[in-house]
């Protein structure tokens, strides 16, 4: 025999089911408050800036340089320009104010970037290199921008122009970044970046007599410096005077980025000084207008002229030929007359 549930019992069951359902809906209606869940960060170094940041940084430098150039005011440079670029442009402004014609700058006049070498790097200081649009010299430049800390902006540090006829080895895309090469480590290169820079300084000073002359391919900048200094030295010595030059690598100036061929693009800066003095019987010499502007007078018995130079090298992998100079920037920054 089967006992069927009474209608009362049935109503009770339905009520209980309805209650459970209502409770469920009410509970479900109370959505939980989301809790922050930090994402896992990859341990591998990433490009120091995104392509968009690189463009913004270049644009800030472009605007600062344009404003400063228009006013010939070095104070307008300091927020976005530093190092050799600041010294060179400040000297050019000083010479221009004194009425001296500006000589060839061997630097960027146009900073709009075409592409960039963005190293994968953590910590500071940081740097990046942009390849700029060709300027009035019809040559692109390598604009080196450096940031000393997270609180400081990237400042245009140097902008050597590519030498005529050279080509740059390709490197990783700006989005993927390039490997930053330790300036002191050879890492499969013909020589460590700092060593390359030191050796080229010797080549500039001694010319073909340098022990390292054969390690570097011929370049137009070296030839030009050799011609100018030889003529300068001969003129001073012909007057019975003395002539001496020094070239020192600027500490901390070497940066290097790995290129796709296994070599590296290396940039380095030098302080170059030339001191000459004339004997008393030779009277006084006359400084060229730009040096006279920096010295504050034209007639001198002697002087120490100071330049800054920034060079860019294509350093090949070990055993793959000579180092090539691909870009150069130089200019006078100070003159001490005697």
């Amino acid at each position: 025999m089967t006992v069927a549930p009474t209608s009362r019992a049935r109503r009770g069951a339905v009520t209980r089911a309805g209650g459970l359902l209502s409770t469920g809906v009410l509970l479900a209606g109370c959505a939980p408050t989301p809790v922050p869940q930090a994402q896992v960060e990859t341990a591998a170094p990433r490009p120091v800036v995104t392509p968009e940041q690189a463009t913004r940084i270049s644009q800030a430098a472009v605007e600062a340089v344009a404003d400063a150039d228009a006013a010939a005011d070095p104070a307008l440079l300091t927020e976005r320009v530093a190092g050799p670029e600041l010294a060179l442009r400040s000297a050019r402004y000083a010479a221009a104010r004194a009425g001296a014609p500006a000589g060839p700058a061997y630097g960027a006049d146009v900073l709009e970037p075409l592409s960039a070498f963005v190293p994968r790097q953590e910590g500071w200081p940081r740097w990046l290199i942009t390849v700029t649009q060709p300027g009035p010299d019809r040559l692109p430049s390598l604009a080196l921008l450096r940031s000393e800390s997270a609180r400081e902006p990237y400042r245009l540090w140097a902008s050597p122009s590519l030498l005529s006829g050279v080509s740059l080895q390709p490197a990783g895309s700006p989005a993927a970044g390039v490997e930053a090469v330790d300036p002191e480590g050879a890492a499969g290169l013909a020589a460590a970046p700092s060593e390359v820079a030191q050796r080229y300084a010797d080549v500039l000073l001694r010319g073909p007599d340098s022990l390292h002359a054969a390690e570097f391919a011929e370049d137009s900048y070296r030839s030009e410096v050799a011609v100018v200094t030889r003529a300068d030295a001969e003129a001073v010595r012909a007057a019975g005077g003395t002539y001496a030059q020094e070239r020192a690598l600027v500490p901390g100036s070497v940066v290097a980025a790995r290129t796709d061929d296994g070599g590296a693009l290396v940039m380095a800066a030098y302080d170059w000084s030339v001191t000459h003095s004339l004997p008393p019987e030779a009277g006084t010499g006359r400084l060229a207008p730009v040096f006279a502007a920096l010295a504050g007078r034209e007639a001198v018995r002697g002087a120490t002229r100071r330049w800054v130079e920034v060079m860019a090298f294509a350093v090949p992998p070990a055993g793959s030929g000579p180092v090539r100079v691909v870009a150069a920037q130089h200019g006078p920054v100070a003159v001490e007359a005697t």
């Binding site: 049935r10 339905v14 359902l21 469920g24 809906v25």
Partner: peptide, 24 residues
């Protein structure tokens, strides 16, 4: 009992559908 369970399922199902539709 068979019918009671069936009706409970129908009611619960309708309730769930309505509640789901309301929440959506």
């Amino acid at each position: 009992m068979h019918r009671v369970i069936a009706w409970l399922l129908v009611l619960a199902g309708l309730g769930g559908l309505v509640a789901g539709a309301l929440l959506a």
